[in-house]
């Protein structure tokens, strides 16, 4: 009965949903705000990767809000799972093969994450991807070693400093150029590592912040009782 009603509702919903989207032409050029971004990204922001220039520069204030949502989610998870009886994990160590491979790969994965967010304005990638890759590296160590502990003081210091950098850069732009997150550094030549003004600084800060927050989420989930 319940299933039949659900399937009927989904059928009606799916019919209208599909009729809207299947009438939308697929793969055609649309004249929207994206056209302006594509044509002016190099002259206005100096960033070669248009996605990065939208995330950090054109919609930078939005990104600040999204990073705040991430921070609130990790804090909220800590509050939900808070338990006084929280104890150390008591699983067994993984096998020697996993442990050795993890020790070798851990610095490489951290390096890959750092590469991805430092080159965010040149190649595909950026702060969000780099932060997620760093969190997977820490996850490998969590899985391999029983005694591996995330340093919460260090993580919160990194997280706060990264957020502070983002806001400080934005406010400097406000003082210097009249609006939040104005690019106050020289743009440089496109396709250079040091180019695009404040975009690499902000994306590196976002990378550290996302990496620290996702690590805290994993640590909170692993350390709850039971």
């Amino acid at each position: 009965m319940r299933k039949a009603v659900a399937i009927l509702l989904l059928g009606i919903f799916g019919y209208y949903f599909a009729s809207i989207f299947l009438s939308l032409p697929f793969g055609e050029k649309r004249e929207g705000v994206g056209k302006h971004y594509l044509e002016n990204t190099i002259s206005e922001t100096g960033s070669v990767n248009t996605v990065t220039s939208i995330v950090v520069s054109y919609r930078g204030f939005d990104t600040l809000g999204e990073v705040t949502v991430l921070f609130l989610a990790s804090t909220g998870l800590g509050a939900i799972l808070f338990d006084v009886r929280r104890k150390k994990r008591n699983e067994q160590n993984a096998s020697p093969i996993v442990r050795t491979t993890s020790t070798v790969f851990y610095p490489m994965i951290i390096l890959l994450g750092a590469y991805v967010f430092v080159h965010g304005h040149l190649t595909p990638g950026g702060g969000f991807q780099g932060g997620a890759i760093i969190a997977t590296g820490v996850l490998l160590m969590f899985m391999a070693y029983r005694k591996f502990e995330a340093n919460h003081t260090l993580l919160s210091v990194i997280e706060s400093l990264a957020g502070l950098t983002f806001v400080t850069v934005g406010l400097t732009g406000l003082i210097y150029g009249g609006s939040f997150l104005v690019n106050f550094l020289p743009l440089g030549t496109p396709n250079d590592l040091v180019s695009a003004g404040v975009i690499p600084i902000i994306y590196i800060a976002v990378g550290f912040k996302v990496g620290a927050e996702l690590t805290v989420v994993l640590d909170d989930m692993l350390k709850t009782i039971r």
Partner: peptide, 16 residues
């Protein structure tokens, strides 16, 4: 860009 994010987050972190 999105493919990189989905591979790192969807396949690894979300599953774990």
């Amino acid at each position: 860009d999105v493919a990189l994010t989905e591979a790192a987050i969807g396949a690894a972190l979300s599953t774990i």
